[in-house]
Simulated scan of single mutants.
Amino acid sequence: MNQPTTPTTPRRAIVTGAAQGIGRCTVQALAAQGVQVAAFDMDAVGLQDATTAGAHLTRTLDLSRREAVVQAVHETVQQFGGIDILVNCAGGVRGQVGRPLDEVSEQDWLQLFDANVHSAFWCAQAVAPHMRSGQFGRIVNIASGAGLRPSLTGIQAYTASKHALVGLTKQLSFELGPFGITVNSVAPGFVLSNPATRRQWDSYGPEGQQRLIDGIHTRRLGTPQDVAAAVLFFTADSAGWISGQILSVDGGRS
Results as ranks from 00 to 15, higher is better:
L112W: 10
L112P: 05
F113N: 07
F113L: 04
F113Q: 00
D114F: 11
N116E: 03
N116R: 00
V117Q: 03
V117F: 07
V117P: 01
H118A: 12
H118D: 02
S119P: 11
A120Q: 08
A120E: 07
W122F: 15
W122V: 03
C123A: 02
A124L: 04
Q125Y: 14
Q125N: 14
A126C: 11
P129C: 06
M131D: 02
M131S: 01
R132W: 14
R132C: 10
S133M: 13
S133G: 13
G134N: 13
F136H: 11
F136M: 00
G137C: 05
G137A: 10
R138Y: 05
I139H: 07
N141K: 10
N141C: 12
I142K: 07
A143L: 11
G145W: 12
G145S: 14
A146R: 03
A146S: 14
A146C: 13
G147E: 04
R149C: 03
R149T: 12
P150L: 08
P150N: 00
S151C: 11
L152V: 13
L152F: 14
L152M: 15
T153K: 05
G154H: 12
I155M: 09
T159E: 03
A160F: 13
S161G: 11
K162N: 04
K162G: 04
A164Q: 06
L165N: 03
L165I: 07
G167L: 07
L168R: 02
L168D: 00
K170H: 13
L172N: 01
S173C: 12
S173G: 15
F174P: 03
E175L: 11
L176E: 01
G177S: 12
G177M: 06
G177V: 10
P178N: 00
P178Y: 11
P178E: 03
F179Y: 15
F179E: 04
F179N: 08
F179I: 07
